[in-house]
């Protein structure tokens, strides 16, 4: 590949500030605002740099208002950046060239792209015309997507009558019909129940395997990030506080381990009264106790547990990666 195209997405020194003005409610506030407005500059993104190679899938995490959605919207061309340089597949997104728009796709979990008064099938027909997808390609893609997401039964039902999970599946189909090279997923599993979340995740993984688009994913659910992303970017107050491999960060920041203890048959100890120096109970389920312990104190904690409890079985495991990221975000807050 030519060197300038080696990076599909190239962002340098990207900054986005926007102004909001404070307005007091009521007629008085409106009148005040006519004459004197108090402007507040909000920095959504602060000189960030990002490079993404073809086929990468990047997870973007951060607290509410940290700048995740702003970044996604700038990359897709909805928002103008205040300063800095953005290139996606060689295009400047905010110029919004048709050729660029044809190769990208954005899914926002909180904002429907489909037309509520139409059945999904009609929506897809419309998208076929919009993206000028050839008949045979359209048929093949649609059949494949409908099959993978198992929604063939509800294709003729108005979108508004679908369940949230079904609707999200339809949104995914709508976003992928034209085989975009770059897919932005902003909170794709928000509000879905566990089964639907898993179905969406499995589908995204499978799709990525087969088509290898760039995917940029923001989510509140660490499970999404853990399952889908290979690379992690943590945003805090408009700055990237971490950008790197998901596994590396997990290893580096595994500060705690988990000890699962099965109590012996005759154990009659009230775990609530247990006072342990090195570990704390985070979960209890009948005979099963789960302790969280500092990674450096595992031996000491185990000794203590064996001394105080009648143990029939014990297992030490790594802390869940999702929790690791969550801790990391908390610490940087």
């Amino acid at each position: 590949m030519h060197s300038s195209f080696a990076k599909m997405i190239k962002v340098s020194q990207l900054t986005k500030t926007y102004r909001v003005y404070k307005k007091n409610p009521g007629l008085k506030g409106t009148l005040q605002a006519l004459f004197k407005r108090e402007w507040i500059d909000k920095v959504a993104l602060d000189h960030v740099n990002l490079q993404i190679e073809p086929g990468e899938i990047v997870g973007l995490v951060g607290a509410n208002g940290a700048g995740k959605t702003t970044l996604v919207k700038i990359l897709s061309g909805i928002i103008h950046p205040t300063s800095g340089d953005v290139k996606v597949m060689g295009y400047t997104p905010f110029e919004r060239k048709y050729a660029f728009r044809k190769q990208i796709s954005l899914i926002m979990g909180q904002k429907a792209q489909l037309w509520w008064d139409l059945p999904a099938e009609d929506c897809f027909m419309l998208l076929k015309e919009i993206y000028e997808i050839p008949e045979d390609v359209y048929k093949k893609n649609l059949a494949h997507l409908v099959d993978a997401l198992d929604v063939s039964r509800v294709m003729n039902i108005q979108i508004r009558r679908l369940s949230l999970g079904e609707r999200m599946k339809m949104e995914l189909i709508a976003a992928l019909l034209h085989q975009p090279k770059v897919v932005f997923l902003d909170e794709p599993t928000i509000g879905l129940d566990m089964t639907a979340q898993k179905a969406v995740r499995d589908f995204i993984l499978d799709y990525r395997e087969k088509h290898k688009p760039i995917m940029i994913l923001t989510s509140h659910y660490m499970e999404d990030i853990k399952q889908l992303a290979k690379r992690l970017v943590i945003i805090k107050d408009g700055k990237f506080v971490y950008d790197g491999d998901l596994d590396t960060i997990a290893k580096k920041h595994h500060t705690h381990k988990l000890i699962n203890v099965t109590l012996g048959m005759n154990a009659e100890i009230d775990p609530n009264k247990l006072l342990l120096k090195h570990s704390e109970i985070i979960q209890r389920d009948g005979d099963l106790l789960k302790f969280k312990v500092d990674a450096n104190e595992v031996t000491a904690a185990l000794n203590e547990i064996f001394k105080t409890l009648e143990v029939s079985d014990v297992k030490v495991e790594e802390e869940d990666i999702a929790d690791v990221i969550e801790n990391l975000m908390k610490r940087n807050r």
């Binding site: 048709y98 050729a99 954005l106 919009i130 993206y131 000028e132």
Partner: peptide, 10 residues
């Protein structure tokens, strides 16, 4: 809600 209209090649 104009977001999606800005993304379409139309």
């Amino acid at each position: 809600d104009l977001d999606y209209y800005l993304l379409r090649p139309v």
